[in-house]
Simulated assay, not measured.
Amino acid sequence: MIRKMYLAVMAMGLLSVSCSNDDDATPQIETSGLTLNLTGLEALGDDFVYEGWVIVDGAPVSTGRFSDVTFPQTFQVLSTQLAAATTFVLSIEPTVDPDPAPAETKVLAGDFSGTSASVNSNLVADFSTVAGTFILATPTDADDTNEESGVWFLDNASGSAVTGLNLPVLSDGWKYEGWAVINGTPISTGTFTDASMADDNAATSVFKGDTGNGPGYPGEDYLQNAPAGFTFPTDLRGTTIVVSVEPSPDNSAAPFTLKPLAQMVAADAAVHTSITMGDGPVQSLMGTVNR
């Protein structure tokens, strides 16, 4: 009996040593911190999130998703991948996303130099030379008494209408959108990609009049079906007209943070007269990423 107990104890000892050796042989996964310190980002709503990516050997590797836009934030990434990364990219992704690859809607990017990368939104477009002009008019109805209730991004200073917005071509995943900020609330004029053509809702806008779609440029007549708390027709004098850059698709009814053009309409502004726009409040987003 004593001999059997001794053999059993020896067997347990050998098993313990064997397990210990197996554990020691298991590769240890090492991670390192990637810290984002970004400025100007705004919350996206429930349907979309931001996702960071590092480019390793030409391929994107996710660094994590987030919806909180308070920074700095730190994410754990495989040390070998982080050390080999050449570029950081920030994209906007669906909250429920079956596609493991980055979406077309990329908002920030920058190359690593040593342990840090300076990132900006130039991959969306360079807005440093934008310019804009609009008029007040309501061409979608036959009433000449409410001309201050519509805004159209065209320039008629020469006597005939020409394109009123000088804007760069946007990268995939983005669109422009016009806004009239009425009593502090932005109301869309519609989305567009080409400022020399009518916007996407030219034929379907619920705000426009009933006699036509207006000129072949972005714009809106605020004549009927006003949102709750507003009365149409209205007076756009004293309001602010804005052109923003929006993710596409876009689940938010509010303007995105990129706003390259804006202009307050003077209280005595004349209708049918070109009004020059100024630089908007946010033409570029930026930040730093440290590994």
Rank of each mutant, 00 (worst) to 15 (best):
M1C: 08
I2N: 05
I2C: 04
V9G: 04
G13V: 02
G13R: 01
L14Y: 08
C19M: 09
S20T: 13
D22S: 13
D22P: 02
D23M: 10
D24R: 11
D24C: 09
T26L: 11
Q28G: 06
S32E: 15
L34E: 14
L34S: 12
L36T: 04
L36D: 04
A43L: 12
L44Q: 10
L44M: 10
G45L: 07
D46H: 11
W53Y: 11
G58M: 08
P60G: 08
V61W: 07
G64R: 08
S67R: 13
T70N: 14
F71M: 00
P72Y: 15
P72A: 14
Q73C: 06
F75V: 08
S79W: 05
A83G: 13
A85D: 09
T86V: 06
T87L: 09
T87D: 12
T87M: 10
F88T: 03
V89P: 01
S91A: 15
S91T: 08
E93G: 01
P98Y: 12
A103D: 03
A103Q: 06
T105C: 03
K106F: 01
K106D: 01
A109N: 12
D111R: 15
F112D: 07
T115Y: 08
T115I: 06
T115D: 15
S116D: 07
S116P: 02
V119A: 06
V119K: 06
V119N: 05
S121A: 04
S121V: 01
N122K: 15
L123P: 03
F127A: 04
F127V: 03
S128H: 06
T129D: 06
T129Q: 09
V130R: 13
V130F: 14
I135S: 10
I135P: 06
A137L: 14
P139H: 14
D141S: 09
T145A: 10
N146F: 05
E148F: 15
G150E: 13
V151H: 15
N156W: 10
N156S: 12
G159H: 07
G159V: 05
S160W: 08
T163G: 05
T163Y: 00
T163H: 01
G164P: 00
L167K: 05
V169W: 03
S171D: 06
D172T: 07
G173D: 00
K175P: 00
Y176R: 08
Y176E: 04
W179Y: 02
W179M: 03
A180G: 13
V181Q: 07
G184N: 11
G184V: 09
I187A: 04
I187V: 09
S188F: 11
G190I: 00
G190Q: 02
T193M: 02
D199Q: 08
D199I: 04
A203R: 07
T204P: 03
V206D: 10
D210F: 05
D210I: 02
T211G: 03
G212Y: 14
N213G: 10
G214C: 11
P218H: 05
P218K: 05
G219R: 10
L223I: 15
L223M: 15
L223A: 15
L223D: 08
A226K: 00
A226Y: 01
G229L: 02
F232H: 05
G238F: 03
G238E: 02
T239S: 13
T240S: 07
V243E: 04
V243C: 07
V245L: 13
V245Q: 11
P249C: 12
N251V: 09
S252Q: 15
F256R: 11
T257D: 01
L261D: 07
A266V: 02
I275R: 00
M277N: 04
D279S: 10
G287H: 02
T288D: 12
R291N: 06
